[in-house]
Design a protein around this nucleic acid. Structure first.
Lengths: 190, 190, 190, 190
DNA sequence: AATGAATGAGCCTTCATTCAT
DNA sequence: TATGAATGAAGGCTCATTCAT
């Protein structure tokens, strides 16, 4: 039998994101994705049960990839401002470089029919966050709030801005970046 | 005669949002929307050129509605923390009560093919914001940053949280709300 | 609005039988049927929920048509050999002239997945048969057997022969026809 | 090596009949049959040219099997009522026990596109019938009719009834069976 | 103004079949 | 021999849109 082309799934994933981000969620179709990935549409069904399954798995894969991106190897997770800055910058770099995947994730998450995926696959990609937040609260570094609040206060503004910049076609300067981080940090620090 | 038309357009708008938020952006269709609005699909084409036109106008309408919602009539726009709090709370209440429209807007805005709408219709719904921000910066109430940054730091966290609560099916308490505002305010205040 | 083309359903029915009998049950497809009926495939779905629904209704329609064909108007249903002969001849003429519909019915009935139709639509097209058979048994004209047996002994041989003749491309002569009826009659008469 | 092949073909045949009778003629597919036979779909193409070829051969095989079933080994073929009864009972038992194959044959035979098979493979599985019928006619045991007529009068009623029983899920009692044979016999006997 | 009828284009998916190992 | 991988063609069905009243 033929050898299985391990890189084919990756090609399909890439093509899916590309098409979805080019033509929108609604404008995407299996045949467009297939053409973009340079495979037959039927081939996609060797790797995925159906379209929903493919998109679910694409979401899980990108979500997990992003989850890992916050924490580079060897990162020091002691509760300090510089740790938060490192993570924050990592996040900024990730969504800047993978803006398509990031937008795909948001669109996916906003789609009401598919909110169940996280439970179905039992995704919990951020236990590290929990620990860092708790330790930081214990050390009186940050305010004693719900972790969801901390997460949103820290990351939502920069995420929102990156999306805006993408649409406008502009870029954020290093100085601005520092200013935004300092502001975000102020909102959660004690 | 005139009233009847307007009411029909409203019905179509409402139906569109309902269907889009029930079946997702991809699962919506003109016939479903027509059925939900209790008109013939052909009728929709009396009021809109085509589907894109309808969705464009739906976006503009909701966007404008939301733009107005920040500022209730008779609101005092003097540069003060309490003005910002009022606006912030207005925003919170609006997206909480119109979460479907808000999510629709986000999905729409994320779709690259339709980014031109804002230019096409020359939407500038926030001159009031500009003025308030500039006056507040001049009065050294808030930090001297790009208005986009201020906007994101102030509103992105609470918007992000409301979406999360919606998916999780939980609610934010009044105490939490105050805490979040205070944090957001800290991030932009001088 | 457009006027509804009442004759369109008939055209679809005819096309369906034609295609099914030309290309076989397996070789038939909605698009072939649509082309044969000279309508768009989508049009078929205005009149039928789906393919199964269409074939179900086609079966019911032809079955009912055949049910009526045994008994021409004004037919005398007194229990006598000549009554049986009339009915028998009617049946022969019907399947000869509508061999396609007849074969379609047999194929349909043989398909295991769709046997439930008769119950779903509560078809009982032959109460007249029941009455004739019972009266004839009471009058000691025919043997006291289960009505199903009578029906099969009377009609199965000629039906089977007509199908064979169709495949072979030959015809049954009038003399032969009489001989076959006499034989069939002998098998049930007292 | 040789044995293994034969066993695999048999498995494919069995699977084909099972699938066709489970999902209907139209619902059957090579991959379903392959899965049921526990082989790869590609394997089927080692033994058959294509799907039509496979079904053709399946028909020939079952047809030949049924042809033989009328006449058990050592059967006495003298022209007598008891010979006819034996053959008739053999036929009844065969279709009862192999109802799926029997129905498959009927569906196949009704499909016009494939009527040529019989000529292509030059099937004449019933010379024994011809001889018996001719001898019986000569001995004035049965009526002097076309052999096709005899065949239909004798077997069509019971075949038709077995199919009906299968759909209804009921069974024919021994008494009934005798009654039906006697009736069928009356129709052809002199 | 309003609508049911109608449709070509396109959707997702499965098919019978071939390829490469 | 045997098979998983791969695919172009076709399947049933729905879509956005237009027609005719």
């Amino acid at each position: 039998m033929r050898i299985k082309d391990d890189e084919k799934i990756t090609r399909i994933y890439r093509a899916a994101i590309k098409v979805i981000n080019r033509d929108g969620f609604q404008g995407s179709s299996m045949s467009k994705i297939a053409k973009e990935a340079d495979v037959s549409a039927a081939t996609i069904y060797l790797y995925f049960e159906n379209k929903d399954d493919m998109i679910d798995k694409l979401y899980i894969q990108t979500k997990s990839k992003m989850g890992k991106s916050y924490f580079h190897e060897g990162i020091e997770l002691s509760p300090s401002k510089s740790t938060f800055r490192t993570i924050w910058i990592n996040h900024y770099q990730y969504i800047t470089r993978n803006i398509d995947e990031y937008i795909f994730q948001e669109n996916f998450a906003n789609c009401p029919l598919i909110e169940h995926v996280e439970k179905k696959y039992n995704m919990d990609y951020c236990p590290t966050f929990e620990q860092l937040f708790e330790k930081s609260k214990a050390a009186r570094l940050i305010l004693p709030m719900d972790n969801d609040f901390i997460y949103s206060l820290l990351f939502a503004p920069i995420s929102s801005l990156v999306k805006k910049q993408k649409i406008a076609g502009t870029e954020i300067s290093m100085n601005d970046l520092i200013q935004i981080f300092e502001s975000s940090w102020k909102s959660i620090s004690q």
